[in-house]
């Protein structure tokens, strides 16, 4: 095909695409002014964009390193971390959690009756629950199990849920993150989009979004702290955090992050944070679960 013909064809195609896009845009506009650019990206496009962003910034860091968070990119911090991992501070939590898992409820039943594949079921969460019409996280599933068996719900940021989840995370080590957004329920995609919206919204008196630190400035330092990439953010919870002097949940960390930027935190395991977890965990699809973890 001569060059002129090729160009003509491309032009024609472009015009065709443009026409299509314009029609689509019109339809969307009519549908109620949905954010056009934002809705254009599919979850897989989001994940690819994040992956490429970090690959470009840290060309020497292989993907399988990302579950190690900031230590994948911070050489000095990594040495300390490796020393800590020699005698993991989260180990007592795993043991305590195992005991909890094995101790029957007052009605004689156990967690195993709720989670037949358990205790290593972390890779099944978070997931979209069509019947309940919401994102179900492992923490929420644990409490639903407890309440169904006449037990009191556990608190979501600290306390006994932490050892239990630590044990379950430990038993899930080696599983691969695999968040699914079912196509047969548009509410699942809406939940993902809401999590994404939360992630990119600037909030607090300091006016940061999650992305400000964990995309735009990943690898740079606030004081001496290296900002971690969001790929891998969800693989290693619960985390023993030296700053806390104990282990805590992902939603406790969300709370702390929001407080740092002087934004009033949302409720742990409330809709916003669950949707954020849904979005954030989706980004880590393909990464190995390595919880519980230790962090500075």
């Amino acid at each position: 095909m001569p060059a002129s013909q090729v160009i003509e064809r491309i032009c024609l195609e472009k015009r065709h695409i443009m026409k299509k896009t314009l029609i689509k845009m019109g339809a969307l506009f009519l549908a109620g002014g949905v954010a056009l650019a934002a809705q254009a990206a599919t979850p897989e496009e989001d994940r690819t964009a994040f992956t490429n962003h970090y690959k470009f910034r840290f060309p020497d860091v292989p993907m399988e390193e990302y579950p190690n968070g900031a230590y994948a990119i911070d050489k000095i911090g990594r040495e300390n971390w490796e020393a800590i991992e020699e005698f993991p501070p989260y180990e007592p939590f795993i043991d305590e959690g195992q005991e909890m898992w094995e101790t029957p409820f007052a009605n004689g039943k156990t967690y195993k009756d709720c989670f037949s594949d358990g205790p290593g079921i972390k890779s099944q969460y978070p997931r979209w629950d069509k019947k309940q019409g919401m994102v179900i996280t492992m923490a929420l599933a644990i409490n639903q199990c407890r309440e169904a068996n006449g037990e009191k719900a556990l608190k979501y940021k600290k306390g006994p849920i932490v050892p239990l989840m630590s044990y379950m995370a430990f038993e899930s080590r080696g599983q691969i993150t695999n968040v699914v957004i079912p196509e047969d329920d548009p509410r699942a995609m809406a939940a993902y989009e809401s999590g994404k919206k939360f992630y990119f919204t600037r909030r607090g008196q300091l006016n940061f979004s999650c992305a400000t630190c964990h995309v735009q400035n990943t690898g740079l330092k606030v004081r001496t702290e290296v900002l971690s990439p969001s790929l891998g953010h969800t693989t290693h919870w619960p985390v023993y955090r030296s700053k806390w002097g104990t282990a805590g949940t992902l939603h406790r960390r969300f709370t702390g992050c929001n407080r740092n930027i002087r934004a009033k935190p949302m409720k742990a395991q409330g809709e916003q944070y669950r949707n954020l977890e849904y979005f954030l965990t989706y980004l880590s699809n393909g990464l190995t679960l390595n919880g519980p973890g230790a962090r500075k």
């Binding site: 400035n217 330092k221 606030v222």
Partner: peptide, 16 residues
């Protein structure tokens, strides 16, 4: 300012 900026004479500055 030191959270993100190096300033001469300032301790443990960030580099955002």
């Amino acid at each position: 300012c030191l959270a993100c900026h190096m300033i001469e004479g300032g301790e443990s500055p960030g580099n955002v």
